[in-house]
């Protein structure tokens, strides 16, 4: 599970629903790798409206600056980690 060579790559959905979501816009559509799985938490997209919130997995995803900002990245190999709910993530096939 900790083998870096087997890093699990995911793409963040590029959804733009007009409501309370925790996924920052600058990460939508970006590809990163799963840093760790954090367990389940009440879905904030339901809790925010006072609704019963289903448990949803929260995942810490690690992105390279170059994979977020492209050629504009000042330091392309800088890493940023963000915690994103699992329903915003889809698996990305390995290319190597």
């Amino acid at each position: 599970m900790k083998l870096r060579a087997m890093a699990e790559r995911v793409r963040v959905a590029r959804w733009m629903p007009p409501g309370h979501v925790r996924t920052p816009a600058y990460l939508r559509g970006r590809v990163g790798e799963v840093e760790r799985r954090l367990g389940t938490f009440p879905n904030p997209e339901q809790a925010a409206y006072g609704l019963p919130a289903e448990p949803r997995e929260l995942v810490r995803v690690r992105f390279r600056a170059a994979d977020i900002w492209g050629a504009e990245a000042e330091r392309p190999d800088d890493l940023i980690e963000a915690e994103i709910y699992g329903h915003w993530l889809e698996p990305v096939a390995h290319q190597d």
Partner: peptide
């Protein structure tokens, strides 16, 4: 093939200022 960060016209909300 990096897509531009979603704009306000695309529905990015005012508080979502990252970047």
């Amino acid at each position: 093939k990096i897509l531009p960060i979603p704009t306000r016209a695309e529905g990015r909300r005012w508080h979502d200022m990252g970047g």
